[in-house]
Design a protein around this nucleic acid. Structure first.
Lengths: 230, 230
DNA sequence: AACACTACTGCCATAAACTGTCAGCAGGTG
DNA sequence: CACCTGCTGACAGTTTATGGCAGTAGTGTT
């Protein structure tokens, strides 16, 4: 039952090898299948999105591009891919930058909804600096954001002073390579950023915070007159 | 015939929806298939690398992670993904950096051989600066490298002086966000770098250069005592 | 210990799909 | 025109997928 899909991949690889148009007969021989079946295989590949062009009297050409087989990525690997593409889209030369944005869009399109948020929030900031290992559980933070739960933090600031805060987290972003929680701070009664690497300890409350996270995100965006850039 | 693979994706999505273990019976009903077939489907997914754990008396759980369906990327999109992951692997916090390296390895593993080179050469340099749009045809350059062809350049240097060079290109890399051709320069009789955005015009000769590009690459590496870093 | 629930495997008959052969149409080339 | 090629339909033979049944084994509950 895996025979067929393997054959389709072989066919794709064969098409890649030839740069010039190849006739169906040749492809049929190389994949060890009848001509009729080859035509059906080509149709299958095209249906699955492979950009194969066939012209009568000429043959088949695979338009440049690469089909990645189904792959399993961990949450962090996916995050790395997204963050990397985001960086390329922003910092590279225009042509490559567009390619980065396109790749990002393709990945985002097939992601489950709760991961889609990650792609969006990673948009907020991009920067360049090192940081130490995170102590906080990033997926737990994401869960709190998704469920609109109040988060209680033991948080150390730049001077090393430790404070206890209740916040309403609504987005997770990056700034200077440090993960940042965007949240409404109950103590300051204002929007605040919290570096995840400065979180000493945290608790997710069962209580939901009294506002929608999308509304908070919108209000926060409105307070930002100019995007943070360098 | 596409029904089966679609059903497997549905099954994966369903497994993701539930956070708790789900029994095979439930999954069978949701995917509209008999219990016996569901067991076979689960086996298929596991064989394809999905990390599904089944425990008697409990049910099935999908370990966190995300399977991307087969996707078509253009050469440039793939380049953006690779370059982005490379950057994350190098510049981000350790955990995310490892994830970036892992993602890169997974992608590289399924790439055709000639694209594998791209992953390797993108390793040479990473930096951070803007550049203007490339005039040169990057895929043509890669072709010249792959076929070990002599490349003739009209090249403008920092002072705007234009020179004509015959070079033996053996790798393509990045430095400060500018694509760089690594090559042996016939004029200087030494290794030189050429920024692709400073190429005014270029011609690929039919003649192959007299040495193997892998040898040139190795020799060039040997001349680099210390890797270029910041 | 008994029981309910579940994952998992083997067997087999049936249903569905894939495949090859044959035929024919359409577009491009010489 | 002949010739090569892509492309589609129909049919029969083969392969594969599926569902039901029976049985084994692990887990948790009573």
């Amino acid at each position: 039952m895996v025979a067929r899909s393997e054959r389709l991949l072989t066919l794709l690889q064969t098409l890649r090898r030839y740069r010039r148009p190849v006739t169906g007969t040749v492809l049929a021989e190389e994949t060890g299948v009848s001509l009729r079946t080859l035509y059906r295989d080509i149709a299958s590949l095209q249906a699955q999105g492979a950009m194969i062009e066939g012209e009568a009297g000429i043959g088949y050409v695979l338009k440049p591009g690469f089909m990645l087989p189904p792959m399993m990525f961990s949450e962090e690997e996916l995050e790395a891919l997204v963050l990397g593409s985001r960086w390329v889209a922003r910092a590279a030369e225009p042509r490559l930058a567009n390619a980065g944005a396109d790749a990002l869009a393709k990945i985002a399109a097939v992601l489950p909804p709760d991961m889609r948020d990650m792609v969006d929030s990673a948009t907020l900031f991009v920067g360049r600096k090192r940081q130490d290992e995170d102590k906080a559980d990033v997926s737990a933070i994401r869960k709190a954001i998704r469920l609109e739960r109040i988060l209680e933090l033991h948080y150390g600031d730049e001077q090393g002073r430790i404070s206890r805060r209740r916040i309403w987290p609504f987005a997770l972003g990056y700034f200077e390579h440090v993960r940042i929680i965007m949240a409404w701070c109950e103590l300051r009664q204002d929007f605040r950023h919290f570096r995840t690497d400065r979180i000493i300890d945290m608790t997710i409350h069962d209580a939901r915070y009294p506002r929608r996270r999308t509304v908070l995100l919108k209000e926060w965006r409105d307070t930002q007159d100019t995007p943070i850039e360098h």
